[in-house]
Simulated assay, not measured.
Amino acid sequence: MSVLLVIPARYASSRYPGKPLVPLKGATGVEQSLIERSWRAAMEVSGIDRVVVATDDDRIKVASEAFGAEVVMTSELCGNGTERCAEAHAALGGGFNIVVNLQGDAPLTPAWFIEGLVEGLRAAPEAEIATPVLRCDGATLNGFLEDRKAGRVGGTTAVFGAQNQGLYFSKEVIPYTNKTYADEADTPVFHHVGVYAYRPGALAAYPGWPVGPLEQLEGLEQLRFLENGRQVLCVEVEARGRQFWELNNPADVPRIEAMMAQMGLE
């Protein structure tokens, strides 16, 4: 079963223009751009047949090819990473059994998150898309709550049913809890990891579906699947002591650099 991994990246981010080219310092002080670190994370994943960067910007194309990535140019009209993945898969001639979307703002994504995701989708033939979820510890949950109080969007949270079918995803912290948790305690809140694995039929259909009110309000592309009655499989993954964070805002740069330093990631 062949697997394509696409890293969608656009320069004109509304929240953080030029984000893919932002430099990040590792534990040794070496700087690499966000897109390069995301590509290097992708190259560590086993069971992937091909990795490409999908962009509509020549600056990202030039930078990506300079560090050895294969680049697929896509339209400026792509509304989100899923649409860009659909266009990239089509541009490559299709033919892959699973397409993985590793968004270009998640350089700390461990390889086992993606490997578990692909395995989960293979084992659930009824699901058309799968995405990882990670149980929050108290420190992560507190960080989410602090971000919201400060008016920032931090991580996305997910709620799912008994068969791990996604019920909802939100930039708010859900489900509601008024309990205080110690930093290392397990909480009832799950962090949605912004990675997706699609079956090609659902991926190809996605750009033709209308943008629903929930997707529009939350700005979360996976809600289009739920709003069109498609099953989203939530695959629980384990941190194994690894810290995880996505780069959503300029304030996330020092946070991610501190995590890389603490984990010894070059």
Rank of each mutant, 00 (worst) to 15 (best):
L4D: 02
L5F: 02
R10F: 11
Y11N: 12
Y11P: 05
Y11E: 11
S14K: 15
S14W: 15
K19S: 13
K25M: 15
A42M: 00
A42F: 00
G47E: 02
G47T: 03
V53W: 02
A54I: 06
A54Y: 04
D57Q: 11
D58Y: 13
K61T: 13
V62I: 14
A63Q: 02
S64Q: 01
A66K: 11
F67Y: 03
E70S: 09
E70L: 07
E70K: 08
V71H: 01
T74I: 13
S75H: 11
E76Q: 13
C78W: 06
T82Y: 02
E83V: 03
R84E: 09
A91V: 08
G94Y: 08
F96Q: 02
N101T: 09
L102C: 02
A106R: 11
A106W: 07
L108H: 02
T109F: 07
A111R: 02
W112V: 03
F113K: 00
L117C: 02
V118E: 01
E119N: 07
A124P: 05
P125F: 06
E128F: 07
A130K: 01
P132K: 05
L134P: 01
D137T: 12
A139G: 14
T140L: 14
L145F: 10
L145E: 13
G151V: 07
G151T: 08
R152D: 11
T156E: 10
T157I: 04
N164W: 03
N164A: 14
G166L: 12
L167T: 09
F169V: 04
F169A: 03
S170V: 04
P175M: 09
K179S: 13
A182K: 13
A185Q: 08
V189H: 04
F190P: 00
G194A: 14
E215D: 09
E215Y: 04
Q216D: 15
L217V: 12
E221S: 14
Q222E: 14
R224V: 00
E227R: 03
Q231I: 10
F244C: 08
F244A: 06
W245M: 15
N248L: 14
N248S: 15
A251Q: 14
V253T: 14
P254S: 15
I256Y: 10
